[in-house]
Amino acid sequence: MALRGWRPKAFRVGEDPDPRFSLANERTFLAWIRTGLGLIAGAVGLEAFGGEVASPGIQTALVVGLLVGAVLLVVSAFVRWMGVEAAMRKGGSLPVPAIAALVVFIIAAAGITLLVVVMR
């Protein structure tokens, strides 16, 4: 097939780093993907069982927020994975891990919203 020799741009620059670093970068990417899947699972659980806790409007807002957050997280994880790979190949500095702030914001916003709803 045409993709046999294809490699993303991040993998075509500079020199190959030590495979251990590339594999560690990939494991980190997969950990972010698992976190995104966890957010999706939380949204599904909230949609299925959240009617007893929150009003329909708040429940919908939380579910949509978690799903949008999961999408942003997995896209950011992919961009970061490629950025780290390119930086390692060029011998440059690694990008700032802004993705962690995104996860903190998503989880804190959902947790505060649920806390306010439950405390009413």
Rank of each mutant, 00 (worst) to 15 (best):
E47W: 09
L37P: 03
R12T: 14
V53H: 14
F21P: 01
N25L: 08
A41R: 11
E26M: 02
G83C: 03
A108W: 04
M82V: 04
V116G: 13
I112L: 15
L115W: 11
K9A: 15
L102Y: 13
R4A: 09
V63R: 14
L37Q: 11
A110Y: 02
G92W: 06
G45F: 01
A48H: 02
G14P: 10
A109M: 08
V64Y: 12
V53Q: 13
S93E: 12
G57F: 03
W6V: 12
T35N: 14
V64A: 13
F49C: 09
M88T: 00
Q59N: 08
V44S: 06
L23T: 02
S22E: 07
G65R: 04
G57S: 11
G83Y: 03
F105L: 13
R27Q: 01
A31L: 04
V71D: 14
P8V: 12
L39C: 04
I107H: 09
L30V: 06
G83F: 00
L62Q: 06
R27Y: 00
V68C: 09
V104K: 15
A109F: 09
A10V: 02
V118L: 04
L66Q: 11
L3Q: 11
G42I: 01
M1R: 15
M1Q: 10
A100Q: 03
R27T: 00
P56W: 12
R89W: 04
E26H: 11
A31S: 09
A24R: 09
L66P: 09
W6S: 15
R4Q: 06
G42W: 02
V118I: 05
E26P: 01
A41M: 07
V118W: 02
I106P: 12
F78R: 12
V103N: 07
G42M: 10
L30N: 10
V53G: 08
L62S: 07
P17C: 08
A41S: 13
L73E: 13
I107F: 08
W32N: 05
A109W: 08
R27M: 01
W6F: 14
P17D: 08
R34I: 00
V103M: 05
L67C: 05
R120V: 02
R34F: 06
